[in-house]
């Protein structure tokens, strides 16, 4: 069985802080699995996903992605970057460009340097972009400018760009946090279906346990930079989930009023 991600004893603190964003995390994700990272805001979900995408340096531990080790001090070589696709929470689209242009931007790492610079995709690149648009249900929006789209449509463009990259590992950071529940279900359904159809591994973060349960085979609970539980979806424990979101330890003297 090939491996999508293997993490051993990973710790990381953001620059200028002592508090670890990730604290001795170990994790093994086989290829083809669909994994949800569940946890409150600030738990370390985004940090873990960005690190797997090769965008964070200065961590300790051992991490390998798609069989190749990550260097804790340097970003991965450019040729390897298209293999991990990232869906950004705030979409990170070029607002003044068309939907098709934005999706083709996902192809830039796969094109020859000259074609990438000139922005002249081959028929093959265009075919992949069109398929990604169709899979995300936005084929009819191809020529629209992104700044004229709704939030749900933008999220679909962001996913289509990631799919056009032909990643073997898809990392999605809160892909539905900006959407209403019905839209959120649709988006996660198409994201996980598209990953499955392409044989890609999908890891998405969420703070909604019901969505994680519906669309992931495995759920990892994170709190305070540590993995609290790591279970197949069928074994998800309600108490453990509730515990994930409990308030931090009440501090003495706050919230209590002295009664004379």
């Amino acid at each position: 069985m090939s491996i999508a991600a293997q993490i051993d004893d990973l710790s990381f603190a953001h620059l200028g802080t002592d508090l670890p964003a990730l604290d001795r995390v170990s994790l093994f994700v086989p290829a083809g699995e669909s994994v949800a990272l569940l946890g409150p805001s600030g738990a370390g979900k985004t940090t873990l996903l960005a690190l797997l995408d090769g965008r964070l340096q200065g961590w300790a531990g051992r991490v390998s992605v798609l069989g190749a080790p990550l260097d804790p001090d340097h970003p991965p070589p450019r040729a390897r970057r298209p293999d991990t696709g990232f869906v950004f929470q705030e979409f990170a689209l070029v607002e003044r460009s068309t939907v098709l242009r934005n999706v083709l931007n996902g192809r830039l790492g796969r094109m020859s340097p000259l074609r990438a610079l000139l922005g002249s995709p081959t028929a093959h690149d265009l075919g992949i972009a069109r398929t990604a648009l169709a899979d995300c249900g936005i084929a009819d929006l191809a020529e629209r400018r992104v700044d004229s789209l709704s939030g749900g449509q933008r999220q679909r463009v962001a996913i289509a760009r990631c799919l056009a990259q032909e990643p073997r590992l898809i990392l999605a950071d809160e892909p539905v946090s900006n959407l209403d529940p019905a839209r959120a279900g649709e988006i996660l359904a198409l994201l996980t279906a598209a990953a499955r159809a392409r044989g890609a591994t999908a890891m998405f973060s969420s703070h909604q346990p019901d969505l994680a349960r519906r669309f992931a085979q495995r759920i990892i609970g994170i709190r305070g930079g540590r993995i609290v539980f790591d279970v197949p979806t069928s074994e998800l424990n309600e108490d453990a989930t509730a515990d994930l979101y409990r308030d931090p330890k009440p501090m003495p003297g706050i919230g209590l009023r002295a009664v004379s």
Binding site: R81, N105, G109, A116, Q165
Partner: peptide, 15 residues
Amino acid sequence: APIAALESAGAGPLV
């Protein structure tokens, strides 16, 4: 944000 996204997709500085 879009610059970071293109870097993540494997695009070089001029691209």
